[in-house]
């Protein structure tokens, strides 16, 4: 950075921008590499994925078990709903991690 002590060189705008840049007041221009910004940590993503998978499975097992209890068909509906729960979990994870169309 060139030394200007409020002299005549450079317009006011230039000097203001330089000063703001030096103080870190302006957001840094985004490089294409870190366009995602500081996203969630890998640990956080892993935890969220785990919770999504498990919660879909829990709901599916609960529905299957409940319907079995209502209709008295003990294992059958639970067996039907467990794969559906797994699929719903994968759908949840896909919703979480799918590439956004806007970016």
């Amino acid at each position: 950075m060139k030394k200007d002590k409020g002299g005549a060189d450079g317009s006011f705008e230039d000097r203001l921008n330089a000063a703001r840049g030096k103080q870190g007041l302006d957001p840094r221009p985004k490089s294409p590499k870190d366009s995602g910004g500081t996203g969630p940590s890998p640990m956080g993503i892993g935890l969220r994925v785990g919770v999504e998978l498990v919660s879909a499975m829990v709901v599916a097992v609960a529905i299957g078990y409940g319907l079995d209890w209502v209709f008295g068909t003990r294992p059958i509906l639970m067996v039907v709903f467990v794969p559906l729960g797994g699929a719903a979990g994968v759908l949840n994870v896909w919703r979480l991690l799918a590439p956004k169309p806007g970016r």
Binding site: L47, R48, V51, E52, V54, S55, A56, V58, V59, A60, I63, F81, L84, G85, A87, A88, G89, L91, N92, R95
Partner: peptide, 25 residues
């Protein structure tokens, strides 16, 4: 029918995932 069931489970699983995430952390 398959997709409706899956979407329904996915919708209901929000209750569990939202609460378990906060609670577990």
């Amino acid at each position: 029918p398959l997709m409706v069931a899956i979407e329904l489970i996915s919708y209901l699983s929000r209750i569990i995932s939202l609460s378990v995430r906060l609670f577990a952390n």
